[in-house]
Write a protein that binds this DNA or RNA. Structure first.
Ligand SMILES: [Mn+2]
Ligand SMILES: [Mn+2]
Ligand SMILES: [Zn+2]
Ligand SMILES: [Zn+2]
Lengths: 143, 143
DNA sequence: CTCGCGAATAGGAACGATTACTGATCACCG
DNA sequence: CGGTGATCAGTAATCGTTCCTATTCGCGAG
C-alpha cells in the first residue's frame, strides 16, 4: 500500500513541521487515483471509500496543508468549486463550459512568461496560474 | 452625465438584446471610477452612493450581463470574491497575499501563449486568464 | 397620452462551498 | 504507561452568490 510515498513529500512534511497523517496520505492517494482535477468533494468521496469516518472538513484541511507545502496545486474557475492537482509545475488547465470537466493542455508551458512578469512587477511573485475555458470536442459536437 | 458611453458598448447591448438600463450604466461607471479590480460588493457600495435603492442582486446580474457581452472581465483568486475589470484584453493581474489588493502587471502580455494553446488542444477555447499571487512592496516591507 | 407586455429590479430567502468551533482521539516524547 | 500538542469527526456558522416573487420600468401599439 502506501509504502511508496515519495521521499520528497516526506521531506516537505518534515521540514514544514506538519504531521504526515493517514488522512493526509489518503487525500494524496485520492488525487493520484482520480485522473482529472477533482474538487474537495470529489476527493472526500474517494477517501471515504477506504475510510468512511473521514470528515469533509478534514479533507479541506489536508488539501490546504498539502498546497501550503507545495505538494499539490489549486486553481479557480467560475461556476466550479476549487480544483486540485498533483501537477505543481506551471501549466495550463482547461475547463469545459459544457460538462465541467477539467483537463490539462499538454505540451504548452508558460514559456518565459514567469520571468517576464517577475521582471515587470515590484511584487514578490509567489504563484502564477493560467486557467482556460472552452468546449471539449464532445460538448462541441453535442451542440 | 452618462452622455459619454462608448459607441461600442451601446452596440454590444443592441446586438445582444439586453437593455442598457440605468443600473447597468451605473455599474459600468463604478468600474471606471474604481481604479483597481473591485468585487461585486465594492461595485455595489459605489453604485449605492448615487442610487441607494439598488440591490446587490442587481449588481451581480449587471456584472454577469456585462461579462457575457464582453464589456468587462472577471478573474478568480483563492481567498477573495470574484474581481471585475474594464480591461478585457488578455493580461496579467496580481493579488497581494498581504493586503488583498489586485492590480495589473503592465507591459506583460500573454505573448503567443493563446496561439500555442489553441494549437495544442482539441477544445474550442473561449477564454484564457492569468492570475498571479504575491506580496506588494508595502506588505513585503511590513514583513 | 394611455394601455399592455415583457424585461429588469428590489428585497429577501435560499443555496453551495468553505471555514470555524468543540470535544474526542491520535502521535509522539519522555 | 501518562502527558501534551496536533489533528480529527461532527456539526454549526459564514460568506459569496444565486434564486424567487411581487413590483416597477421601458417602450411600442393603438
Ligand atoms: Mn493541471
Ligand atoms: Mn486587470
Ligand atoms: Zn465538455
Ligand atoms: Zn499588499
Amino acid at each position: 500500500m502506501g509504502v511508496t510515498l515519495e521521499r520528497d513529500i516526506r521531506e516537505r512534511f518534515r521540514r514544514s513541521g506538519y504531521t504526515l497523517t493517514s488522512q493526509r496520505k489518503a487525500v494524496l492517494e485520492a488525487l493520484g487515483e482520480s485522473r482529472g482535477h477533482p474538487s474537495a468533494e470529489d476527493v472526500y468521496l474517494l477517501v471515504k471509500k477506504k475510510n468512511p469516518r473521514v470528515a469533509l472538513g478534514t479533507v479541506y484541511q489536508a488539501l490546504s496543508v498539502l498546497e501550503e507545502i507545495g505538494v499539490i496545486g489549486a486553481k479557480h474557475w467560475s461556476e466550479s468549486p476549487t480544483r486540485y492537482d498533483l501537477n505543481v509545475e506551471p501549466h495550463l488547465d482547461i475547463r469545459c463550459l459544457g460538462c465541467g470537466a477539467v483537463s490539462e493542455i499538454p505540451g504548452v508551458g508558460l514559456g518565459d512568461l514567469e520571468d517576464r512578469l517577475r521582471a515587470a512587477t515590484p511584487y514578490e511573485v509567489t504563484h502564477a496560474a493560467v486557467v482556460v475555458e472552452g468546449l471539449c470536442p464532445a460538448c462541441r459536437a453535442a451542440g
